[in-house]
Amino acid sequence: MKLLTLNFLTCARKTCKSTAAAFPLHPKEAELEQVEMELNPLFVKNMLPRLDWEAMKTLATELGLPNLPAETPVAEELANESGEPTQTLRDLHTLLMETAIASGKLVCGNCGHEYAVKEGIANFLLPSHMV
């Protein structure tokens, strides 16, 4: 599961969903894998506006990855004057698109429930008493 995906996920419990603490989910004992992908400048540029930047910064810190810039980069920071991809673009590409959680857990900051990730697939099925 790509780190990008964590921008779209929250705790599956009804009582957690509307709380701020349930997002982002916190990786625990995460084993990361690097999956090389073609640089995808348009995707990165168009995805930036919908990223929760604070959440992305939290994730990068928790996973021990290089710190992200304090503010969401603007489109102009992604290409240099001659239109070549900048290091910022490459870093974002590496973080969001090429870094994936292969296994581990995703923990809700509100209720503490741990969702297992195995073979890159997170299991959000809850036992019936927790739904």
């Binding site: 599961m1 790509k2 990008l4 995906t5 921008n7 779209f8 996920l9 929250t10 705790c11 599956a12 009804k14 969903k17 509307s18 997002f23 994936a100 969702y115 890159g120 697939i121 997170a122 299991n123 959000f124 099925l125 809850l126 739904v131």
Partner: peptide
């Protein structure tokens, strides 16, 4: 982005 083993859209951010 990935596959999610889940129940409908319960795991997705509003």
């Amino acid at each position: 982005g990935g596959s999610i083993n889940g129940d409908l859209m319960t795991s997705l951010r509003p």
